[in-house]
């Protein structure tokens, strides 16, 4: 590859990135947000027994606990503070 083409490739890349980035910013945010919601659902399903939603036998949910340890605090906060959610959870 010549220097020129390398440079053109670089410019094209920057250009593409900008356009792509602008368009994908929303999509990325959406994907990340959906992913976070799913994470909360996952924790609810596997560890929700203590909020009165028993689904997975506790012996196996404990097995998964180490992997979601960092998310637990956020999950609990969300479960407990989301107003309409708690209305349902009662």
């Amino acid at each position: 590859m010549t220097d020129e083409s390398k440079e053109r490739g670089g410019l094209m890349k920057v250009f593409k990135d900008v356009v792509y980035g602008m368009a994908s910013h929303e999509m990325t945010r959406h994907a990340v947000r959906t992913r976070a919601s799913m994470e909360h659902l996952f924790i609810l399903i596997t560890m929700g027994d203590l909020l009165g939603v028993p689904i997975l036998p506790p012996y196996y949910s404990l097995r998964l606990l180490p992997y979601v340890t960092p998310q637990i605090a956020g999950w609990k906060r969300r479960m407990l503070r989301e107003r309409d959610l708690t209305d349902v959870l009662g």
Binding site: S37, H40, L41, L51, V88
Partner: peptide
């Protein structure tokens, strides 16, 4: 019924199209 309501609400809340009944 209580559990069903909780789960259904959550599925909707999380925008997940899984049926709550199996759970």
């Amino acid at each position: 019924n209580e559990i069903r309501e909780k789960i259904q609400w959550f599925l909707k809340f999380a925008d997940i199209s899984t049926k709550a009944d199996d759970f």
